[in-house]
Design a protein around this nucleic acid. Structure first.
Length: 639
RNA sequence: CGGGGCGUAGCGCAGUUUGGUAGCGCGUCUGACUGGGGGUCAGAAGGUCGCAGGUUCAAAUCCUGUCGCCCCGACCA
C-alpha cells in the first residue's frame, strides 16, 4: 500500500486519490484545486488538546502538541512535516553562514571504523565514557556511529591536502550524529540521534587558525541572529574533543543543562566547568590555636556538623570558611586507577571538570583521566585509616596526588580531617602542617558573588542551552594520525586544526524554548514552517469570505510567500487555537469585516489590525519581507 | 548503574487496596444543529488491560519473571 501510494505521488496521478478511502482526510471546505497543496485540510495537522504526559519543558511539550515531532523511542524522535520545514530552514541558514566563511560542504559517513578511531587514540576515551554507539557487521567488524568526525575528516585531509599552498581549508557537513546518552530527556534537547553541523579547519599556523576561529565565531552569531535566537559565547572546557581553547554558544534558558558564570560589565562569561573567580576572604578567626591541635570530634563528619561541634566546645568564631574540605576520588585512565584527593575551602565544592584536567596534567604520560568517581567508603578507609568524614592532608593520607585549590595558598589556620575516626586537626596550616606533597591548582567551583577574574566585580550565574561549540584543536589529531602537509621549507608538518559544531535540531528546540507563550509556539519568521495563514471565518458558503480568502491565498503564493489556506470545515475558534499553537507568524482572517471590504491582520503575539482586502496581499508580503530583512540586518550588525 | 514511578482505546486518565461481564474525558466516524477562541444534541466504531508464566471456578486486579517508558540521582563522606 505504501509503495503504491509513493508511486502514485511520483506520477502525480491523484486529483481524487484512491487511498483517500483508507486515510480519509477532513473534508475540504472548498472545491478541489490544482494549486500547490498548502491547504490545511491536506496537511495532516495533528495537534493535541492536552499536553503529552512525558513532556516537561516548553519546547518538548509544544513541539509534540503542535504535531511537529512524535516520539519513536526513548531519545528518538520522528520529525513530522512541520518540523521538517522548520529544521530545513535552520539547516539552510547555518549552511549559508558557514559557507560564507569559505568553508566547503561535504558529506561524511556515519559509520566509522574502530581502527580509524584507534589511530587518534580516542576509541578508548569514548568507550570508557560510553558516549559512542557501536554496531557490528556480519564479520564482527566494529563501527562507531558518528558522534563527531575528527578522525574521518583528518584522514580525508591527509589524502587531499598535501601542500601549504592549499591551506587554510575548512570542510563541513550537516548530518545525523549519535550519542549513547545515559538518560535522554527534555524532548529534542538530549537525544540519542540528532542533526549537527560540524566543520573542521586545517592550517599551517596558529595565526591562520585564529583567523578561522574568529570568522566561525562571527558566522555562528550571524546564524543564530538570523534564526531569531539570542545566543552568546562563553569560555568552555574542551572535554573529550580535546584541544587548547574553546567557546560554547549558549541560549539563555531556565531549563538549560549548563550553568554559566558571567559578569555583564566586563563581558566575562564561562561555562561553570571552566569558570574562575576570586573567593571572598574568610572572616578572621579570633582565637585560632597557634599550632595544629588534635581535637576529639565524635560522630561529626560533615563540615557543618564539625563547625557546630567546635563552636559548642571551646572554638567560638570558627566557620565553614575555615574548614578544609577533602574530597577523595578514583581517577581512571586507560591503564590504571589512581586514588587522588582534592582540597577546597570548607564552604565550597570541588569543580570536578577542572580537577580532572589537573589530574590529567599531573599524570602526564600516564594520562589522560577518562573518568572520575568518588571513592567508595572502603577505599576511603584504606586511604585514610579512618571512617569517611575525617580525611585531611596530615599524616596517614595515602593518595597519588593531593591537590589543593590555589586560593588556599597562604590561607589559614584551618580545620582539617585528622585521618583518624572522630578526630580533626584544629589550627592546621597547609604549608606548615601538611604531611603529603601538595599540588596547587584552580579546582574550586566558582559561584555567583565571587569576584570576576577580569574586573573584580561580583559574578552572576544563569543557565543556558548549549547550541554550538568551537575548538582550537591544534595538532592533537593530525599528529596522532600522521596527517601532514609539505611546508614552504620542504618539511612535513601536521595540520593545525580547529573544529566547530552547531546542534541544528537542538537550535530549533532552543528557539521554541526562547519563543513561546501560553497559547503555543511563537516562531521567529526565519524558522516558522509557514509564514502566513489565511483563515476564512464565517459560515461555509459565504461567497464574499471565501473569495477573499482564496484570492489572498493565490496572491500570496504568487508573491512567493509560504502561505497556508485553512480550508477546513471547522469553527473559527478551533482554527485560531491551532495556528496559535503551531505558531504561524502572521494570521489573516477573512470574516466579519469583509462587509467593509476588510480583513484582519494578526501577527502571532501581536494585536489585530483591519486592512482593506485590496491591500492585504501586498501588506502581508511586505510584512514578511521586512521581518526577514530585519533579522538579516541584525546579523550584519554582528561584530 | 542506584532509587522512585508508570504501562488499561489515538491522547490524557480512573478502575488494582478488598479477584466476579472494560470505564470516563478528549479525539475519531455518521447525521443534525451551530459558525469569531478547542460549541451542542443523537448515534457509532475502537482495548487479547506491555509481554510470558503461575495461583484460582474466575485475574486489569494476587504471585514470579521479563520488556518498555518517565522522573530523581549517579556529589563533597
Amino acid at each position: 500500500m505504501w509503495k503504491r501510494f509513493q508511486s502514485m505521488q511520483a506520477q502525480g496521478a491523484c486529483a481524487t486519490p484512491c487511498w483517500r478511502v483508507a486515510y480519509a482526510p477532513a473534508a475540504p471546505r472548498f472545491a478541489p484545486s490544482k494549486e500547490k497543496p498548502m491547504r490545511a485540510s491536506r496537511m495532516n495537522l495533528a495537534t493535541l488538546r492536552e499536553d503529552p504526559a512525558d513532556a516537561e519543558i516548553a519546547s518538548h511539550r509544544l513541539l509534540v502538541r503542535a504535531g511537529f515531532i512524535a516520539k519513536s523511542g526513548s531519545g528518538l524522535y520522528l520529525y513530522g512535516p512541520l518540523m521538517h520545514r522548520s529544521l530545513d530552514k535552520a539547516r539552510r541558514v547555518i549552511a549559508e553562514e558557514i559557507s560564507r566563511t569559505g568553508a566547503l560542504e561535504i558529506t561524511m559517513p556515519i559509520l566509522q571504523e574502530q581502527a580509524l578511531w584507534e589511530r587518534s587514540g580516542r576509541w578508548a576515551t569514548y568507550q570508557a565514557s560510553r558516549t559512542m554507539l557501536t554496531v557490528k557487521d556480519r564479520g564482527d567488524m566494529v563501527f562507531g556511529l558518528a558522534p563527531t568526525a575528527e578522525e574521518v575528516v583528518t584522514d580525508y585531509a591527509s589524502q587531499v591536502v598535501s601542500s601549504y599552498r592549499q591551506l587554510p581549508v575548512c570542510f563541513f557537513q550537516q548530518h545525523t550524529k549519535f550519542r549513547d546518552e545515559i538518560r535522554p530527556r527534555f524532548g529534542l534537547m538530549r537525544v540519542k540521534e540528532f542533526i549537527m553541523m560540524d566543520a573542521y579547519s586545517f592550517h599551517d599556523s596558529e595565526a591562520s587558525l585564529g583567523e578561522t576561529y574568529e570568522s566561525m565565531r562571527v558566522a555562528y552569531l550571524r546564524a543564530f541572529t538570523r534564526l531569531g535566537l539570542e545566543a552568546f559565547a562563553v569560555e568552555a572546557d574542551t572535554g573529550a574533543i580535546g584541544g587548547s581553547g574553546s567557546h560554547e554558544f549558549m541560549v539563555a534558558a531556565a531549563v538549560g543543562e549548563d550553568a554559566i558564570i558571567f559578569q555583564n560589565e566586563s563581558g566575562y562569561g564561562a561555562n561553570v566547568e571552566r569558570a574562575s573567580g576570586r573567593i571572598p576572604a574568610a572572616p578572621a578567626w579570633a582565637g585560632a590555636p597557634a599550632a595544629s591541635t588534635l581535637v576529639h570530634t565524635p560522630g561529626v563528619g560533615s563540615i557543618a556538623d564539625v563547625m557546630a561541634f567546635l563552636n559548642a566546645n571551646g572554638f567560638a568564631g570558627v566557620t565553614a570558611q575555615h574548614g578544609l574540605k577533602c574530597v577523595l576520588f578514583a581517577a581512571k585512565t586507560a591503564a590504571a586507577e589512581h586514588l587522588v584527593a582534592a582540597f577546597v575551602r570548607g564552604d565550597r565544592d570541588v569543580n570536578e571538570v577542572k580537577f580532572t584536567n589537573t589530574v590529567t596534567r599531573l599524570l602526564g604520560e600516564a594520562g589522560p583521566v577518562l573518568t572520575l568517581r568518588p571513592m567508595h567508603p572502603d577505599e576511603v578507609r584504606a586511604c585514610t585509616g579512618a571512617e569517611p568524614g575525617y580525611a585531611g592532608p596530615g599524616a596517614g593520607l595515602k593518595v597519588a596526588f593531593a591537590v589543593v585549590d590555589s586560593q588556599l595558598k597562604g590561607v589559614g589556620p584551618l580545620v582539617a580531617g585528622a585521618n583518624r575516626t572522630d578526630h580533626h586537626l584544629v589550627g592546621f596550616v597547609l604549608e606548615r602542617d601538611a604531611q603529603v606533597p601538595l599540588q596547587w591548582d584552580d579546582i574550586v567551583r566558582t559561584v555567583a558573588g565571587d569576584a570576576c577574574p577580569r574586573s573584580g566585580k561580583p559574578l552572576n550565574e544563569k543557565r543556558g542551552i548549549e547550541v554550538g561549540h568551537i575548538f582550537k584543536l591544534g595538532t592533537k589529531y593530525s599528529a596522532a594520525m600522521k596527517a601532514e602537509y609539505m611546508d614552504k621549507d620542504g618539511s612535513r608538518r601536521p595540520f593545525i586544526m580547529g573544529c566547530y559544531g552547531i546542534g541544528s535540531s537542538r537550535v530549533v528546540a532552543a528557539a521554541v524554548e526562547q519563543h513561546h507563550d501560553a497559547d503555543g509556539i511563537v516562531w521567529p519568521l526565519s524558522l516558522a514552517p509557514y509564514q502566513v495563514v489565511v483563515v476564512p471565518a464565517g459560515k461555509p458558503g459565504d461567497a464574499a469570505i471565501e473569495q477573499a480568502a482564496q484570492g489572498l491565498y493565490r496572491d500570496l503564493q504568487a508573491a512567493g510567500i509560504e502561505v497556508i489556506l485553512d480550508d477546513r470545515d471547522a469553527k473559527p475558534g478551533v482554527k485560531f487555537k491551532d495556528w496559535d499553537l503551531i505558531g504561524i507568524p502572521l494570521r489573516i482572517v477573512a470574516g466579519k469585516a469583509i462587509a467593509q471590504a476588510q480583513v484582519e491582520f494578526k501577527p502571532r503575539g501581536g494585536a489585530v489590525e483591519l486592512v482593506p482586502v485590496a491591500e492585504a496581499a501586498a501588506r502581508a508580503t511586505a510584512w514578511v519581507r521586512d521581518g526577514l530583512a530585519r533579522l538579516a540586518a541584525a546579523a550584519d550588525a554582528v561584530r
